[in-house]
C-alpha cells in the first residue's frame, strides 16, 4: 500500500472509530454511569441517521422531505428526535428491573427497524435514502479530512460534556443510584427522573452518532441497523475500554475497531470457499473476545475512576 493509500485508509478508519466512540460514550451514560442495559443502541442510532438524512437531503418523492437543511440543523434534529423517542420509552420502562429494560430495548430497536423497513413514505423502505452530503460539504467541500475533523470535533465536544456530567452532582447522583437505589430514594431524590434523564441523554448521543454515520457514508438503509454492528460492537467497545470511564469508552472504540479490522486479516487467509462466511468468523472472534474480557478483566482497560470503587461497593452488599 502506498503512502496515499495508507493515509486515506487511516483517515477512513479514524472517522469510523470516531463515530463508534460517540456511540460508546452514549452507552456509557446509560450503562457506565447509571447501570442501564440498552441492547437497542441500533434503534436510536437509526433514528439519528434517518432524521439527519431526511432533514438535510434535497427534496425527494421517495421519502419524507428531504428538507435540504444545513448539516448542523440535521445534527440538532437527530439529537432532538432520538431524545423525543427515548423519553416516552424511558418513562414507561425505566422503573423496570435492569434485565426487563434490556429486553424492552431489544423490542424498541426491532420496532424502529421495522418502521424504517416498511414505511416507504417515511424512509423509502428497504431501498434506503441515498445522496446524503458529507458534513459541511457546501462550505468546505467533499473532503475526507474535513469529514474526519468534523467527527473528531463532535467527539471531543461529547467527551467533554460527558466528563463534565460525570463529575457533576448529576453524575454523582446517577452513580449513587446504580450503587444503592434505596439509599438515594431515602435521601429524597426522585430516582425515576434521574434515570429517565440518563436514558434520554444517552439515546440522544447515540442519535448524534447516527447522524454522523449518515453523513459519512452518504447512504442509509435498514440493513445498516441490524443489531450486530451498532449494538454488539459498541457494547464490546465500552466493556473493553472500561464501563464508567469516558476516556475508556473512546479507547475501547479504537482498540476494538482495530481488532475488528484485524480479524479481516485473519479471514483474508481463509480458503476461498469460506470467503462468504468471513463476517461470521469475525463476529465469532469478537464474541469470544467479549467473553474473555468479561471473565479476565471485567472492569476493562481503564477502570472507572470514582470516589467509590464499584467492586468494593458491590462486595459490601449482600
Amino acid at each position: 500500500m502506498d503512502f496515499l493509500g495508507l493515509e486515506s485508509y487511516l483517515v477512513a478508519m479514524l472517522t469510523t472509530v470516531g463515530i463508534y466512540a460517540v456511540l460508546s460514550l452514549g452507552l456509557n451514560v446509560q450503562f457506565g454511569l447509571t447501570g442501564q442495559i440498552n441492547i437497542g443502541i441500533a434503534g436510536f442510532y437509526a433514528v439519528g441517521a434517518y432524521t439527519a438524512a431526511i432533514l438535510t437531503t434535497s427534496e425527494s418523492v421517495h421519502h419524507l422531505g428531504g428538507f435540504g437543511l444545513p448539516f448542523v440543523i440535521g445534527l440538532a434534529g437527530a439529537v432532538l428526535m432520538s431524545a423525543l423517542i427515548a423519553l416516552p420509552i424511558g418513562l414507561v420502562t425505566i422503573r423496570l428491573r435492569s434485565d426487563y429494560l434490556a429486553i424492552a430495548t431489544i423490542g424498541i430497536a426491532e420496532i424502529i427497524r421495522l418502521v424504517f423497513k416498511n414505511e416507504d413514505w417515511l424512509s423509502n423502505g428497504v431501498r434506503g435514502i441515498p445522496g446524503i452530503e458529507r458534513p459541511l460539504a457546501g462550505w468546505l467541500g467533499t473532503n475526507a479530512h474535513v469529514t474526519l475533523a468534523v467527527v473528531l470535533v463532535v467527539l471531543a465536544v461529547v467527551w467533554w460534556l460527558c466528563e463534565r456530567a460525570r463529575v457533576s452532582p448529576w453524575g454523582r447522583v446517577l452513580r449513587a443510584i446504580r450503587e444503592n437505589e434505596q439509599g438515594v430514594t431515602a435521601a429524597g431524590k426522585d430516582v425515576v427522573r434521574f434515570r429517565v434523564q440518563a436514558f434520554v441523554v444517552g439515546a440522544a448521543i447515540m442519535g448524534l452518532g447516527g447522524a454522523l454515520y449518515a453523513h459519512v457514508v452518504g447512504f442509509i438503509s435498514p440493513e445498516a441497523f441490524m443489531p450486530l454492528h451498532a449494538t454488539f460492537l459498541v457494547w464490546v467497545m465500552l466493556i473493553a475500554g472500561g464501563a464508567g470511564n469516558n476516556t475508556g469508552a473512546i479507547v475501547g472504540a479504537l482498540i476494538i475497531w482495530l481488532v475488528w479490522s484485524g480479524t479481516e486479516l485473519v479471514t483474508g487467509r481463509l480458503p476461498p470457499e469460506f470467503a462468504t462466511q468471513a463476517s461470521s468468523v469475525r463476529v465469532l472472534m469478537i464474541g469470544v473476545l467479549l467473553q474473555v474480557i468479561l471473565i479476565a478483566r471485567p472492569q476493562g482497560l481503564l477502570p472507572e475512576r470514582a470516589p467509590r470503587a464499584v467492586g468494593a461497593a458491590r462486595g459490601r452488599g449482600k
Binding site: 447501570g35 442495559i37 441492547i39 435492569s98 434485565d99 434490556a102 450486530l228 454488539f232 457494547w235 464490546v236 466493556i239 463476529v283 465469532l284 469478537i286 464474541g287 469470544v288 467479549l290 467473553q291 468479561l294 471485567p298 458491590r314
Partner: peptide, 15 residues
C-alpha cells in the same frame, strides 16, 4: 452481577 451475565449471553448469542 446478573448484568454481566446478561451481556455475556448477548455475546454468546452472536457466537
Amino acid at each position: 452481577s446478573p448484568v454481566i451475565l446478561l451481556i455475556s449471553s448477548f455475546g454468546m448469542a452472536l457466537v
